[in-house]
Design a protein around this nucleic acid. Sequence first.
RNA 1: GCUGGGAUGGCGGAGCGGACAAUCGCACCAGACUGUAAAUCUGGCGGUCGAAAGGCCUACCUAGGUUCGAAUCCUAGUCCCAGCA
Length: 313
Amino acid sequence: MGKLLIICGPTAVGKTSLAIELARTLEGELVSADSKQVYKGLDIGTGKDIPPQAKRKGFYLYKGVKIWGYDLVGASQDYSVAQFVAFAQDRIKRIRKDGKLPILVGGTGLYIRAIVDGIGTVEIPNNNALRKNLAEKEVQELFELLAQLDPIKAGSLNASDKKNPRRLIRAIEIATWRLNSGGRKLKQVRPQEDALFIGLIAPKKVLYERIDKRVETRLRAGIIKEITALLKSGVDWDNQSMSSLGYRQWREYFAGVSSKEEVVKLWKVQERKYAKRQITWFKKDLRIIWFDVVSPGWREKVEKLVKKWYKLS
RNA sequence: GCUGGGAUGGCGGAGCGGACAAUCGCACCAGACUGUAAAUCUGGCGGUCGAAAGGCCUACCUAGGUUCGAAUCCUAGUCCCAGCA
């Protein structure tokens, strides 16, 4: 039974920094659970706050700690939880084989859940033809279509999901697959048994200040240059990677519609809203043990807790 | 100084006599989430009473007026903006 340490929480609370520290004392390796750091070339905006010299083959080596999960695909490619699960599960296994502690660190709640609890339908692939077909449809139509294909699923959707085209399309995709798969069984998901969840949080005011500061830092670090280079290399604004915070906001600037100041302002606002969404997601998970990063001695407390958990094997 | 245009909720911006506590967008608050998740989506958003339906109050620069009824019309004032001087 393998142990898995999880460090989660909203953006800008210092998850990576804590994870590295813990990895050093416990002989661990990090696996980033971050849906945007997987893209090559998206460095500044996604907060790979690691010097480029740290880059090795397949991982980053920083302060003697290996970090996995960055730069997995090109910036023009699509990516999804399914790929992440495949990657991370394999990585976690290898880390354990090396006798090290895997530390899953990141702010993408779905990715963490997918590793810890599993997603039953994750192996059902996307169907691009179908997606394209449904892309223009109204939610009403999509819902009715789903209701025909899978009335139970349709009935179980909440008011919000019933109006969410993206979710409806995926649900239709799954229903379609089931109809065409001839009753093929999906693999049983196997949840992680011994996971410790550490959640980092800060008072809203502090968090927002940190976010603002971070945006400024990224601006100074050359986010505009980075985007320019990405565009030049053939990355398109409509690519999934470019929907990342701190990238998509620049579209209007590059189109000559918005000023730099306007973009930065927008960016900060969006970043805050994102943090809010993350908190909404994580706070539902009662397994998470929360630490306020402005409270004195929190690092020692975390360390103590983690050590205790790790030794109990 | 003259001539036009305008002042609407935290901001932008509709409405131009009744269906207006005022479309919509942004912000803000709350929430959802099982292959795009830094994505996508939902609800709320003047005050107050109520579980709700709904009621009451205060509101569209200020002050008067017309009208059964005014954010919408008239008069005066204040302040903005544009053109002419």
